[in-house]
Design a protein around this nucleic acid. Structure first.
Length: 721
DNA sequence: ATAACAGAGCTTTTT
DNA sequence: GCTCTGTTAT
């Protein structure tokens, strides 16, 4: 076997990591330094050089995308499939363990995974039952609280309420929630991890088995692990000193959802016999960009320490543009993108990155008016769409009728005459007698307490579900799904809905049937689970990037968080303003501020060739005009790498003060400050100031190509741009 | 049972 | 200011 192929293509540091002795390893991999490459080659190294069977290897990631990519790349490198190797997300692997050992995990064989939407519904319901005022106790907060406890490995019964009223209340909700989940056979995301941890912790034989099996354990994005994930990894590797982690403390941006950057420091304590490798050579960006990133992040403390460098040249300086307002910012960015495209670039090589989703709007509008194709990331994914969740609810009920959230979701969707009264009675009965809604419904039918109409409707629904369960046994998966979608009446329902929306929903349902047809049922690894149950688990664990990908060449719009791991030739990092980025909530918290800085670092390091930074001097936020100061991050960048963009030489722009003055003037006129306009001769521009009234009304406009001009409204032919 | 209305909320997201 | 949710009124 030609072993050299595994390491010849690597640089010295990468090679050091890949060929390190079999011991605990910490690889600090800077942005664009070949992190995945090292993981992939390390695993190939184990297989080919250390002769470890794929069966004895475990690799954990955070996203399905990363897991799939890793498996593909390993198989490509080895030129052989390695199905026996466990590669997956924390949640996916935990799910697999729980399936395989459901009994020992104290779960029913048919347990199903629910997403956060289902979870929130359960919590809302149960809080209503507890008579809690949801304005005083927001269900979202309770959900957040429960998940935070689970992330820390804390069960309701182990919580200390410290005599605190709030904690006491939360504890009660948590207790009730655990109860409902256990009874309906439902497991939320955090529960997967917590239970998988408990499973190993409490079953010595199992733990021994897996410790022996997983001779080498690899973790990607280690800086994002939370307490329970790290605890699980420690259980698996304790005594074996075989944990290989790759991460970047400077790219830790998920502290707010429980990620513990400290795990990196703790790793060094917990595995005293470990090696460290730093990957600092960057293969993505040019010199100025890396210099900016390095200089910025140096403002953080408690770093492991790392400095990116490149063998490529300095490249172009980073451009900084101060916009008048958010429209002008969008205008500027879109113009630059159009120029890029005119110069032969692809739209898909460009990305607009922002701190919060709400910022996408201005850019979308501008892109729309210029007929520039774009794609906004984030938002609903395929399996989260209402019509899909409804169809899945029918499927879930057909395998487990005690799934209350699914029952609630579709019992009267489409409407079949099961009203609020009937449902309320059913809920009360279910709660009083500790029954599932399904059981309560059966009981009510039996006791003949319902009016005939309601009774018939309800019986109709129950029969529908039972019939679905029967057909499932005979039909293939996609036929089952097709059957459900049709006989449930969902297709009918959405066909009637207002044209475009309903049409899209019908299409999505058809796409669901298609997804079922294409579903790759790996019966070997199905852990005795039917195809339908596997499909449902798949739907919950992999919300699906697969929303009918348009392969058009599109400008990419996304938040900084979703940009992590991606790269673009041309990047716009927008809205660099105090209160927006760094966010308002981070301003008075040193720890959060540092996380914002890391986020900025992530943003900067997405750029390969050219980076634009923009901020607006005025911005409408929550319906109010604000005049934010430029982000502190801008001041933390090396001036020699930054080039300020001026539209015209020596153009003076309104300062904060004059901007607020002109706002007053603008209120009575036809035009608004910052409004984009078009003039026959001067082309496109932005309104800067207004004065006078009626015949005398004048507008000052900053024209893109003609500079700043005062125009009499009565004579100038202006159109909204 | 649908539409209209009022009220809340408003960083970031994967699983 | 806008969007989403849940409630109320027809």
């Amino acid at each position: 076997m030609d072993v050299s192929s595994i390491i010849t293509s690597l640089n010295d540091d990468q090679r050091l990591a890949v060929s390190a002795p079999m011991q605990a390893m910490l690889v600090l991999a800077g942005a664009g330094s070949g992190k995945t490459r090292v993981l992939v080659h390390r695993i190939a190294w184990h297989i080919q050089v250390n002769h470890i069977s794929p069966y004895n290897i475990l690799a954990v990631t955070f996203t399905n995308k990363a897991a799939n990519e890793m498996r593909n790349r390993i198989e490509e490198l080895l030129e052989t499939p390695a199905r026996a190797m466990w590669i997956g997300t924390f949640h996916g692997l935990a799910h697999r363990l729980l399936r395989q050992h459901a009994k020992q995990a104290k779960l029913p064989d048919t347990f199903q995974v629910m997403d956060s939407d289902d979870q929130l519904r359960i919590i809302k319901r149960l809080m209503k039952n507890l008579n809690l005022d949801d304005s005083k106790w927001p269900p979202k907060q309770a959900q957040w609280f429960i998940n935070a406890q689970k992330d820390e490995g804390i069960r309701a019964k182990h919580m200390h309420d410290n005599g605190d009223f709030y904690n006491r209340q939360m504890k009660d909700i948590y207790l009730a929630y655990e109860d409902v989940c256990q009874r309906s056979g439902l497991v939320d995301f955090a529960e997967l991890l917590l239970r998988a941890h408990e499973l190993l912790r409490d079953n010595e034989d199992l733990l021994a088995f897996y410790r022996q099996r997983f001779q080498q354990v690899h973790v990607d994005e280690f800086q994002d692990t939370n307490t329970i994930q790290y605890a699980w990894l420690r259980l698996l590797t304790e005594g074996n000193n075989n944990l290989f982690v790759v991460g970047d403390d400077d790219q830790s941006i998920y502290g707010w959802r429980g990620a513990k950057i400290e795990n990196i420091f703790n790793f060094q304590k917990h595995y005293p016999e470990h090696g460290i490798v730093r990957l600092e050579q960057n293969y993505r960006s040019t010199g100025h960009i890396l210099k900016a990133a390095n200089t910025l992040i140096a403002n953080n403390d408690n770093r492991m320490g790392k400095e990116l460098w490149t063998a490529a040249g300095e490249g172009q300086a980073i451009s900084l543009y101060s916009a008048f307002n958010e429209q002008d910012e969008a205008y500027f960015v879109v113009e630059k993108i159009r120029q890029w495209v005119r110069d032969g670039g692809l739209r898909s090589e460009t990305a607009i990155l922002y701190r919060s989703n709400a910022q996408s709007r201005q850019f979308e509008e501008r892109l729309m008016t210029t007929a520039t194709p774009y794609r906004v990331y984030g938002g609903l994914r395929f399996f989260e769409r209402m019509e899909i969740k409804n169809a899945l609810a029918y499927l879930r009920l057909s395998t487990n009728p005690h799934d209350d959230p699914s029952f609630e979701r579709v019992v009267n969707t489409p409407t079949r005459g099961i009203g609020a009264k009937t449902l309320d009675d059913m809920r009360i009965l279910a709660r009083e007698q500790q029954l599932s809604l399904w059981q309560a419904a059966l009981a009510m039918l039996e006791s003949n307490q319902l009016p005939a109409r309601a009774s018939n409707a309800l019986r109709g629904f129950l029969n529908l579900i039972i019939a679905l369960g029967e057909t499932t046994k005979e039909l293939s998966l996609h036929e089952t799904v097709k059957q459900v979608v049709e006989t449930s009446g969902l297709i009918e329902l959405y066909k009637k809905e207002k044209q475009d929306k309903g049409e899209a929903r019908v299409e999505n349902l058809e796409e669901l049937v298609n997804a079922a047809r294409l579903f790759d049922y790996d019966s070997e690894n199905a852990e005795n689970l039917g195809e339908l149950d596997m499909f449902l688990a798949h739907a919950a664990l992999e919300a699906g990037e697969m929303q009918g990908e348009v392969d058009e060449d599109c400008v990419q719009l996304m938040t900084l968080h979703s940009a992590k791991g991606l790269e673009f030739k041309l990047v716009f990092l927008v809205g660099l303003e105090e209160g927006l980025f760094p966010s308002q909530q981070a301003l008075d918290d040193a720890g959060r501020l540092q996380e914002e800085r890391r986020l900025c670092y992530v943003g900067i390091t997405r750029a390969m060739q050219q980076l634009y930074l923009t901020h607006a001097e005025s911005r409408r936020l929550y319906g109010k005009d604000s005049y934010p100061r430029a982000s502190r991050f801008l001041r933390e960048l090396p001036p020699e790498s930054i080039q300020e963009i001026r539209l015209r030489a020596n153009v003076s722009r309104p300062t904060t003060n004059s901007a607020s003055q002109s706002k007053g003037l603008g209120s009575k006129g036809t035009y608004k400050l910052g409004q984009p306009v078009r003039h026959e001769k001067f082309g496109e521009g932005v309104v800067l100031q207004m004065e006078g009234e009626g015949e005398q009304e004048r507008v000052q406009i900053n024209f893109r190509n003609a500079g700043i001009k005062w125009l009499m409204l009565a004579y100038a032919k202006l159109d909204a741009a």
